[in-house]
Design a protein around this nucleic acid. Structure first.
Length: 516
DNA sequence: GTTACTCAGCGGGGAGGACG
DNA sequence: CGTCCTCCCCGCTGAGTAAC
């Protein structure tokens, strides 16, 4: 069966529908995907360039556009198992060394801390969470008037426009102050940027925008020391897990295993609440402190010897980077806006790097963009075991041709006995980069948060110059994901150092980097 | 001005790893 | 066990830089 995967070949008549229903992990090659692929290929054939925001075919095959599931329809959150979620947070902390260090004492010395979290929820909030599945109206119904509540606690901010809403769970030493402050002073909001504020700013101007605050939970008194700050953090974390407002990779870790994540893409808590107050401990300016660091200070934290500080910086960086792969285009736009500013600054400052770094970076980018825009004709090579591939730089792509189909053309070349090439046959590789994760990606193992999930590799192995029938390639490799993340970074103008500092990046052929 | 060296990208294999 | 393909290594290029 495995050998049949690519059978819908250049003639295209026989789609070779596989009857066995395979388990879901082999995402590809059900009939619908094949039809979708065919429609997409038709579409691409007529258009130049390698960047597409979306395909017309997406409308006919909405199920193939995987990211949209969470963003369309009438979203309802399944009933959250409060106690399980609390358990999961506490045991998650035990697994993260730095968090264990920070929260260890608090957890050890407070009896039944999981029950405590549930008790801190307001009665109205608990009623909603316990009643069953949750709608947006239920959340609004929690009420609690946090804007006139001078206690400490955790609130939920609902930002709503027609057909879409976003959620942010936040904490405040004084609820009313925080909300008044944010309400009354958009100028201050602009000054201390966060995703929450950015989104707020973007939506504020739109028609029928609504901004609603409700109270999720309160604590007995103002946090007087760091341990009480931490328990407020836990409550915020609890709220963010219940309502799934963390970024999806965080939810995957912090929620009970296998719990369905429905709302992740509406959440604005990209920074982990557990880190609240970390940098600003002792300062009353919780909100501002994070943003006061200069680039150099931040970079020092990121590479410094202090492990806790390093983990914090990594969290901040990942929070920001997660926007680039966000399923919601509005969120992506926020990342790109900031990224362009960084690029402009980078080109002038050279960031302490040699000129050579930038010229080589520019060259490789130029090459990559040419590859993306025009595709590339490559030699077909046959590996030791008979499979065919073609490569661009360090990125080699499995052509998925039936084994030994070109055997009559295979020639041994100059040196070794394993040195094969296919005489007279070229492959034309054409990368396609889209804005949102696609089922046609070359690396099915790429997560939606991997840039590689947006990369499609098409190949013409028929005529070999791009005029022949195009097929889409894929491979079930795992390492290829990290590699192609690099390639997409290259396409999108992210320089080598930045790219390699991100999660799930790997580039081979890099000698002499171990000196760092 | 010439030479030597460095660094990242490029192009190409071979070997070993993963998976049934 | 066979099959398949990723991974890693090597040498090359071309620009920048430092030393002579």
């Amino acid at each position: 069966m495995i050998g049949e995967r690519h059978r819908w070949d250049s003639e295209g008549e026989r789609m070779n529908v596989e009857e066995e229903t395979e388990p879901d992990d082999s995402v590809e090659f059900n009939t619908e995907t094949e039809k979708y692929a065919k429609a997409v290929l038709e579409e691409i054939r007529k258009l130049p360039g390698g960047r597409f925001s979306s395909f017309l075919a997406d409308n006919s095959f909405p199920r193939q556009v995987s990211h949209q599931d969470a963003l369309i329809g009438d979203p309802i959150l399944p009933k959250p198992p409060l106690r399980l979620i609390a358990d999961s947070i506490i045991s998650g902390i035990q697994l993260k060394e730095t968090q264990k260090k920070r929260y260890g004492d608090l957890i050890r010395y407070s009896a039944r801390i999981e029950d405590g979290l549930c008790d801190q929820l307001t009665p109205a909030a608990r009623e909603v969470f316990e009643k069953g599945s949750i709608t947006l109206d239920d959340l609004i119904g929690i009420g609690g008037n946090p804007d006139s509540d001078d206690r400490s606690g955790v609130y939920l901010h609902i930002l709503r426009i027609p057909n879409m809403f976003y959620l942010y769970v936040g904490q405040a030493v004084v609820l009313s102050e925080r909300i008044q402050y944010q309400h009354n002073d958009p100028e201050k909001r602009r000054k201390y940027p966060s995703l929450h504020y950015k989104v707020w700013e973007e939506l504020e101007g739109q028609d029928d925008f609504e901004s609603i605050f409700v109270t999720l939970g309160t604590v007995g008194h103002y946090p007087r020391d760091s341990s009480e700050q931490l328990s407020l953090n836990l409550l915020e974390m609890f709220g963010a897990c219940i309502l799934q407002t963390l970024k999806s990779s965080d939810l995957e870790f912090w929620l009970p295993e296998g719990f369905p994540v429905r709302w992740a893409d509406r959440g604005l808590n990209v920074a982990l609440p557990l880190w609240q107050g970390y940098i600003s401990r002792g300062s009353s300016q919780i909100l501002q402190a994070d943003m006061k660091m200069t680039k150099e200070e931040f970079s020092a934290a990121l590479h410094g010897a202090n492990e806790t500080r390093r983990q914090w910086a990594i969290n901040v960086k990942n929070s920001y980077q997660s926007l680039r792969v966000h399923p919601d285009p509005q969120m992506q736009a926020i990342w790109w806006k900031y990224f362009e500013k960084c690029c402009a600054a980078r080109d002038q400052l050279f960031l302490g790097r040699t000129k050579s770094y930038y010229t080589t970076q520019n060259n490789s980018r130029k090459n990559a963009l040419d590859f993306l825009a025009n595709g590339k004709q490559c030699k077909i090579v046959q590996s030791n075991w008979g499979s065919y591939s073609a490569s661009y730089a360090d990125y080699s792509f499995n052509l998925g041709l039936k084994a030994h189909c070109f055997n009559h053309l295979v020639k041994q070349s100059r040196s070794g006995k394993f040195d094969y090439f296919v005489d007279g046959k070229m492959a034309f590789l054409r990368p396609i980069l889209v804005d949102t994760p696609t089922n046609l990606r070359y690396a099915p193992n790429a997560l939606p948060t991997d840039p590689a999930s947006r990369l499609i590799i098409l190949a013409d192995t028929d005529k070999g110059d791009g005029t022949g029938k195009l097929r889409y390639l894929f491979t079930k490799g795992t390492k290829v994901v990290e590699k192609l993340n690099r390639l997409v970074d290259l396409f999108e103008g992210i320089d080598y150092d930045t790219s390699m500092s991100l999660e799930r990046r790997h580039s081979s052929g890099m000698r002499s980097r171990e000196t760092e």
